Amino acid sequence: MKLSNWFVRDGAERPLIWPCVTLVLLCGLNLWVNPHFLSLRMLDGHLFGAPIDVLNRAAPLVLVATGMTLVIATRGIDISVGAVVAIAGAAAATILAAQPEPSSALIAQALIAALIVGVLSGMWNGVLVSFVGMQPIIATLILMVAGRGIAQLLTAGQIIPIGAPGYLFVGGGYLLGVPSSVWIATVAVLATAALVEGTALGLFIRAIGVNPVATRLVGLRSKALVFAVYGFSGLTAAMAGILISSNVRSADGNNAGLLLELDAILAVTLGGTSLLGGRFSLAGTVLGALIIQTLTYTTYSIGVPPEATLVVKAAVVLAVSVIQSPSARALGMSLVTHRRVAR
């Protein structure tokens, strides 16, 4: 079988193939520009290099996109995750600012508070979507606007510096030579995958996405499950907020997590999750997040002006999305069939 035929057929049966190809091509482009792109070096017990930098920068996006994947799988959307990132970071920084040298107990309190406000934010969205009956984009738009204001109120419109070593280790430290943020994102994704793929939860989420009315009629508590999914999205956004504020050593209510919701949606769709619900892939979501971060790294490394970065990103995302679309696959199969008949 010719390679082109294999890609067309296998692309329909294995939706992860195109994200993998895209990521490999981006890495190949970086290797062409910089032959040492994949090189790693150990310094002071820490691994350094472009792959580590990409993984470290992609960790918050992976977390947010993981929660977004389950939301989209239920035919929903959550455009408030960027604001939740800002709220979580602001809440933690506000608590840590209460003492010049925060104790371990205060650091733990700040971490827990950030996670709680994230879950509460997600639950607020869940109530509006599941029980009030609002459209997901409208319900989360409310928190997207109000949440950014809440974050700025918590920080009084200022950038709050964070100097607690224990807190800074969460997003800026290293464990076994690898950034701690990478470990946190990896554990979160694996735990989520074990939960949705190792239990009936994944089947229930897919069923809601396929036909929410039918799932309710057969006795599945679809409203409670959708509510829980939005709460989980808030939790993953709060975790990302902790990583970001820890990594930059400050909380910025105005800019933290800005437009992160768009990157998360792109990562989910690049990974093969259907915006119509019913089909999702956590592995694909991780690949999508890595594609976006690698693409960002690539644009800077090849000298693309910063103001054109978003245009390049949009073009690549458009190309990959079109290739993955059922219409493009059908067209590819028809072309292959037509060539065979012509012969």
Rank of each mutant, 00 (worst) to 15 (best):
D44P: 14
D44G: 14
D44R: 11
D44Y: 11
L47C: 05
L47Y: 05
F48T: 14
F48C: 13
G49R: 07
G49C: 12
A50T: 09
A50F: 04
P51F: 14
P51G: 00
I52V: 11
D53I: 01
D53L: 02
V54T: 05
L55P: 06
L55Y: 10
N56W: 09
N56D: 14
R57L: 09
R57C: 04
A58G: 09
A59Y: 10
A59R: 15
P60Q: 07
P60E: 01
P60K: 13
L61N: 15
L61W: 12
L61R: 12
L61F: 12
L61E: 14
V62E: 11
V62D: 12
L63W: 15
L63A: 08
V64Q: 04
V64C: 03
V64M: 04
V64Y: 00
V64G: 03
A65R: 07
T66N: 01
T66W: 03
T66K: 02
T66G: 06
T66P: 04
T66R: 04
G67H: 02
M68C: 05
M68S: 03
T69D: 03
T69Q: 04
T69W: 05
T69I: 01
L70T: 09
L70W: 13
L70F: 14
L70A: 13
V71I: 13
I72S: 04
I72R: 06
A73M: 14
A73Y: 14
R75Q: 09
G76T: 13
I77N: 10
I77H: 02
D78I: 06
D78R: 03
D78A: 08
I79T: 08
I79F: 06
I79D: 13
I79E: 12
I79Q: 09
S80D: 15
S80E: 14
S80V: 02
V81F: 09
V81G: 06
V81A: 00
V81Q: 05
A83E: 01
A83L: 08
A83T: 03
V84K: 02
V84Y: 02
V85M: 08
V85A: 01
V85Y: 02
A86T: 00
A86M: 07
A86S: 08
A86Q: 07
A86R: 00
A86P: 01
I87K: 04
I87Q: 02
I87M: 12
I87Y: 08
A88C: 10
A88M: 09
G89P: 02
G89R: 10
A90I: 08
A91E: 05
A92Q: 03
A92I: 06
A93G: 06
T94S: 13
T94H: 06
I95H: 10
I95Y: 11
L96P: 05
A97H: 12
A97V: 00
A97Q: 15
A97F: 06
A98R: 10
A98S: 15
Q99S: 13
Q99L: 09
Q99M: 10
P100F: 00
E101C: 08
E101L: 14
P102T: 07
P102R: 05
P102L: 07
P102F: 00
S103M: 10
S103L: 10
S104Q: 11
S104Y: 12
S104A: 15
S104F: 15
S104T: 13
